[in-house]
């Protein structure tokens, strides 16, 4: 589904990603973990070109998104993204947040878009909030709406950039539950997270980044019980 070849990203002289290569298969759930500043968010944001890679190639469904000729907007329609700080549209109701892009980008009719939106709101358990504005929601509710908004475009891949890091502890679970059930539907997911328990339980693979390098790429059981690299061992010790 996503193929990354020798990905580099520099900000001026600062090298954030130093040649990362990996593949995320269809239906796979990949957790991307690592210390702050390891480049994991940048790595994720390169996948839908919110960050422009300095060099290397990224293929999303066989389309090279680093190629200038590729219509990035078209690719992004199939790649949903969930942000740490939700970024719901504050001047639109919950329902309008969900129907906006399907209507304006994919050209669905209002009825079609609302039908999809209401199904998704039911999935994330927020049907009764459809006509509220985002300011009236709690953090956990906002993030669930944000997930539903991304799903409303019916993407093939979902990217999550630390989706629970800005939440109060008691709201983390409701968001993780939604993500867990999404994983069970066979959605391809790449998740930057600090939730080790979640990564261990839900992910098919764990990518451990440190200093812009992909240090480990292993199934969660193997990674959490028997990390090969010194850096991963230290990191896991600090996390526990």
């Amino acid at each position: 589904m996503i193929k990354i070849e020798n990905l580099h990203k520099n900000y001026g002289k600062l090298e954030v990603l130093k040649g990362i290569s990996t593949t995320i298969g269809a239906g796979e759930v990949v957790a991307i973990i690592g210390p702050s500043g390891s480049g994991k968010s940048t790595f994720l944001r390169c996948m839908n070109v919110l960050e422009n890679p300095t060099s290397g190639r990224i293929l999303v469904r066989d389309q090279d998104v680093t190629d200038k000729k590729t219509n990035i907007m078209k690719v992004r329609q199939n790649v949903g993204m969930v942000f740490q700080h939700f970024y719901l549209f504050p001047h639109k109701t919950v329902l309008q947040n969900l129907t906006y892009a399907p209507m304006k980008v994919k050209g669905l009719s209002k009825d079609q878009a609302e039908k999809i939106a209401l199904e998704l709101l039911e999935q994330v358990g927020l049907t009764e909030k459809a006509d509220e504005y985002p300011t009236r929601l709690s953090g956990g509710q906002k993030q669930r709406v944000a997930i539903a908004r991304a799903l409303a475009m019916q993407p093939d891949v979902m990217l999550f950039d630390e989706p629970t890091s800005a939440l109060d502890p008691e709201m983390v679970k409701e968001v993780l539950e939604v993500m867990k059930s999404l994983a069970h539907t066979g959605m391809t997911m790449a998740i930057v997270t600090h939730e080790m328990g979640f990564a261990r339980e839900v992910a098919d693979r764990v990518l451990f980044l440190d200093g812009g390098v992909l240090v480990e790429d292993a199934p969660p059981e193997e990674f959490f019980t028997n990390p090969r690299s010194q850096r991963a061992q230290e990191f896991l010790q600090k996390m526990l």
Partner: peptide, 12 residues
Amino acid sequence: GQQEAAMALGVP
């Protein structure tokens, strides 16, 4: 982030 959210949805 508003711009990023819109971009991520493929909004021109």
